[in-house]
Every structure is written in C-alpha cells, then in structure tokens.
Design a protein around this nucleic acid. Structure first.
Lengths: 345, 345
DNA sequence: ACACCGAGTTGACATTTGTCAATTGTCTCG
DNA sequence: CGAGACAATTGACAAATGTCAACTCGGTGT
C-alpha cells in the first residue's frame, strides 16, 4: 500500500448521535476515548469495552480526536535544534536559532516539510502580545496549513507586502489571513497592490489615511516571517502574477540572486534597488532588518544561493531549512569568512 | 513477504555508527525518527529504511523520544471541560472551570487520574511570572509526577504549609520541590514544621527573619494548588505523621468534614478553628481564599463530603475531579441551594 | 591474545491497530 | 407508514507495532 498518510488523514466528520451510549457520555465519547487511550495508555480494545462500543469505532473516535485537536502530537522544535547540523549553521551565520528538518527521501516536497517545522517553531515562540509580520510564498503558505487551530486573541498578524494580482493560494493576503485564522489572532491586511504602475501612484496610495494607519501597525511588528525566492527558477513571484520577466530581467542582470518579501537582494544580501522599487508597496528590506526576531523559512537546491545571500546580510535571526540546504550552507559560510566577506557576529 | 531470504541476503558486515550512517546523525537519530514518524506519518518500517537501522531499533528510538519529551502527546484539558458533567459541576458551584476525568474501570487509582489531568491543566494555565502556592497530599504528589519536564524560569513554586515530621513521598516540601523541578521553576520552601508544639513557639518561628521573607513570597501567590483530605479515612494527614488522632478528634467532634492545606473545615466549608490552629505554620484558609486562582484537585468516594464542603465555601475556582465524585456533587449543590445555604455566585 | 562484559541492535513472533465492505439504525419525504 | 438516503457502527482481515531472547561489537581486564 502506498497511501502512507492515512494514519493522519480523515474526511471531516461533524455530527454524532449517541444512542447506544450509556448516558455516561453527557457529551463527547471522543474525548473519553482520547483520554483513556492517550493519557492512560489503554489499548483500543480496552477503551472499546469501557465505552461499550466496537473497537473499530474507537479507531474512528481517536482519528476524530486528532482531527479536532483534542489530542496533540508534536515534535518539539527545540530538539530539531539539537541536531549538530543545525548548530553548525547557527554558528556559521550567527543565528540565534536554527531548525534543520530531517530528510524523508522525497516523500514530501521541501517546502511542506519546512512549513511544518516552521509552524511548530512559530507557535512555540509566539508571545501573547506579539505583532507578527508575514511575507508570502509557497513555504509560508505551507506553514499556515500546518498550524493547529489556536486561540491567541492578543496576537496580531500583519501583511507586510501588498497584494498580488492573481489571488493564488499563496498570495500575501491569503498567507496572512490563513495564519491569523489558524492562530485565532487579529488579522491586519495591507489593502493595496504589491506593485503599482508608477511611483506617482504609489505615493498616492501610501498617503491614503487608511493605509497610513495600516502601515503604523505593520511597523510595530516584533517578529517577521518570510520565505526566500530564487530568481533562477522563474518561481513563485512570477507564477503568481506578482512580477513579470521584463520586471525581473534588469535586476538579474545586475546580480540579483534572490527575493525576500518581494525585494531583490544581491550575492552579499544587499538590497538591490531598481526600477520596480519605488513602485512597490510594503516593508522595505531595511525595515524588515530592524524587526527584532526574523524567522526565515526556506530551503531546496534552487534556493541555496538566495538563502546564502539572505543569511549573509543577517536578514534572519532564525532559520528553518532542510538537511540538504543546511549542508550546502555550512561550507559556504566558512569560505566566505575565509575570503573576508563581512558578517556581523 | 516471507523472510526466508533475509538471513541470506542481509550482508554480514554492515558497519553501524560512524560508517553506515551517512554522517546525517551529527547527533540524534532519536530526533529524526520522531520527526519522520510523528510529524510526517511514515511507518516505522519506512523510518527504519530511511535511517538504515532495523525496525526494532526505531521502536526503541520512538520510545526514547517519548521518554525524553522530544514528542509530546497530550489531551488538551480544554476538552475535558466540554464534557457535560464538568459544565454542570462548574455551574452548580460557580467555578470558572471544571475538569472531569473519565472513568477507566479502576485501572488507575483516582488520585493518579486526577493528578494527570491536573498536570495538564496546570501547564496550560501557568503564565510566565506566576507564583504558584502548593499544598500537599497524595493527589498533589501524583500531579507532580505527571508533569512533563519544562523550562519556566520565571515561575515561582511556593510551599504554603510547613513541613511534616516524617518525610513521605507526598510531604509538603517534596510536593513543592518536585513540581518546581519538573517545571524548571524557582522553588521556595517553607523551612519550618507544619505544626509546632506550642503557640508560643509558633510566634517565635514566624518572627524569624528568614521565615518572614519566605512568607512574603508565599503571600504573593496568584495561583494555589491544593487537594482536599477527608477526616474519616484516617488518611493522608495522619499517615504522613502530620497529625495524630488526638489532634484530629476534637475537630471531628465539632463537625469537621475535611482538611484543606492542613486546616479543618466544617460541612459548610467554614474554617473550624481549634487547639491546633495557633500551632500551625502556613497560609490560613482565609489567605488561601484571597488568591485569585485556586485549583482544587480531589476526588474519590471517601472525599465527597469534604470536596462538597470546600466547594461550598468557594475555596476553589477550578476543580479537577473524577466522574463518580462529579456525579455525586451535582445533586448536592441543587439540594443545598434549595435549602437556602448561601453560596457566592 | 583472549575471554568476558554491557550497551545497542536485530529477527521472529505476539499483539495491537487500521481498513473496508456490509450492516444497522435514523431521519426524511412521498 | 414505508421506501430511500444517509451516517454511524461493526466484524473480519491486513498491516503496523511492541516484545524479547539472541546476537554483535567495541571496550576491559587478566
């Protein structure tokens, strides 16, 4: 059998009627089953006896308990940091923190795996009154999907780049609102295009009182979450209608190796300003760099150059990546420090 | 698949550790196994292939991962509140919160089950700067044993009653320090006997500067955790050498039905002061009642009267108990409100 | 050099868990 | 009031997991 995810996957189940149930279950047999099985370590058969149902039903109850987050099964992100490789990367680039996701032989795409680890990390780091700025991309979207339902009304999730034209699954506005919804947090969207047609128009937009308000909130972010795009792969930024080849061309010609939150960076990670920049609406790289905690989630062979550049200029304080990328990053850091490229400690 | 082949096929000399293992395990195969199995939903066999070890080893790794808290499997206490019975109890006694632990047909003793649920509840409610006052008893001890290892350096755990004579497993000083250790919290012990020989001695003790300091901290508790003892069962308080039959007798004669944090209460939950009280060192019931969040963990047939009394006088804001006790409590509350016994809303 | 030890690993087997098609019970609508 | 639709439940089987005695391997003492 190749449907290897079955253990975790279930069609949504909503109502439940209790008839055979001995009046003990004033409400939820699912909770009882979960308690007896996961907390007391009964076998499913014992639970079935206790509840007076068949074992098969217990299987279903437990499945539902996982789906409804009555039980949580989580690998603590703290331990992914203890992997030696994670330490090496963190040391090499002066990160406060690095998570390296184990290799799974290609079962899940890289961004999925990184997204999950990122989700774990995020919920372990979020504090009650945080303002979390989020960028966008495939990996950020994967992270949002991996978040459990929570209830953190004190947290604010803010969109730090304007919207893309086509509303794809991983557009800035959806990434933000998905994350906010999952966390039960306040959502602050940036209601403006990410790139407008002229610098003139941009000026009009950002003077608009509603947007001024929004920007005030966005700039209070004390954490940011962003992915890193490569420019080689004709990737996310373009497929999503955010940018076009004509736009990107000049930047690449001038040495752009990656994209962070819609902005180009060169090999050293320095912002590469060009024709587009004064038409972009959203936090600038310098503004992002001033946020105290900066979580970068990115990995994959095609992104190594871009991630290296981003780390090189200290955009991230925390990196979540995969083994292959981490392996590639460590020697580069060594080489670059040997060749004297500056890096803050 | 049949395994007649395997013995032949298995290459006789695969080196383990440093060689067969692709240098991936800079540190911990346990973490990798946990990730692949719990987070990505691989089967143990797939994990074994990925790691290049036998499946049996993967079983061991996963076991260790659970032991070392690399993975946590937890039933969220929030859902134990959704059980109808819990709601009824909470409503009947004006609790902000009530957890009812499912029946398990007698597999585990009541105090064990309640302790586990209490542990869950506690870690979900603790805030970074809390000062948690803890009483003592079998149930409190069970709770401490069920706590996972954590790291909460901002939290203070304070002992609210003096020490017992014989140092049993569930003595005040051990309950406190066990909880503090598990939580990674600061531990404040009350270095004095719980009961001294004369009121005179007590006065001397509590004027002692070291104790005055300690009491200052204890009185800043914003949460307390306590069990409830019955007086019938010649239970905890006596077996632990804390009290003697001669001591208890007069209180019982005057209507004591329970013990909270070493102090006697009557049927209505009112403090029953007697000969012992001015020889006791620790928070008084009135002081306990002033703490904003008061978590009571108690249950079992022999304690119903005592728990009822405690709830009746609002010592608890949160109750963790078992189904049988909860069932007994609900109708009593109804009766007592019919007969006009006052109860704050 | 070699017998011994203990930690860590393994294959074989027993037990537990997941799956699925068939069944039962409930509710709706003619 | 009965037929049909639908969801929950189940038993039987297949797959995955836990257990354990035997084994491997690096180190240790004689």
């Amino acid at each position: 059998m190749t449907r290897t995810l079955q253990r975790q996957v279930t069609p949504p189940r909503i109502k439940r009627r209790a008839l055979s149930i001995p009046a003990e279950f004033d409400s939820d047999p699912v909770v009882w089953a979960a308690w007896l099985y996961y907390e007391e370590g009964m076998t499913q058969e014992e639970v079935a006896d206790q509840l007076g149902v068949s074992r098969a039903s217990v299987v279903n109850f437990l499945q539902e308990a996982r789906d409804r987050n009555i039980v949580t099964i989580a690998v603590s992100s703290r331990h992914l940091q203890t992997i030696g490789l994670a330490r090496e990367v963190a040391d090499a680039y002066g990160l406060t923190n690095c998570l390296v996701v184990p290799d799974d032989g290609g079962r899940l795409p890289v961004h999925e795996r990184i997204g999950r680890a990122g989700a774990r990390l995020l919920i372990e780091r979020l504090q009650p009154d945080d303002v979390l700025g989020v960028s966008w991309g495939r990996t950020v979207q994967a992270l949002s999907a991996a978040l459990p339902e929570m209830n953190l009304p004190g947290v604010t999730v803010a969109q730090i780049t304007g919207c893309s034209i086509g509303t794809t699954e991983f557009s800035p506005e959806l990434c933000t609102s998905n994350i906010a919804t999952r966390l039960g947090a306040r959502c602050v969207n940036l209601h403006a295009p990410g790139i407008v047609s002229t610098a003139q128009i941009k000026r009009l937009f950002v003077q608009e009182p509603a947007l001024v308000e929004t920007f005030k909130i966005i700039r209070t972010s004390n954490k940011v979450l962003f992915g890193v795009g490569s420019v080689d792969d004709a990737g996310t930024a373009m497929r999503s209608g955010y940018m076009s080849p004509e736009n990107i061309g000049p930047y690449v010609a001038r040495g752009a190796v990656g994209v962070v939150s819609g902005r180009f960076i060169d090999h050293d990670g320095k912002p590469l300003l060009g024709a587009l920049d004064n038409r972009m609406i959203g936090l600038t790289l310098d503004e992002i760099a001033r946020v105290p905690e900066r979580i970068c989630i990115a990995g994959g062979a095609d992104k190594i150059d871009a991630v290296f550049a981003a780390l090189n200029n200290n955009y991230a304080t925390i990196l979540v990546t995969d083994v292959a990328t981490a392996r590639a990053l460590v020697p580069r850091a060594a080489r670059s420090s040997r060749t004297g490229v500056t890096r803050r400690p």
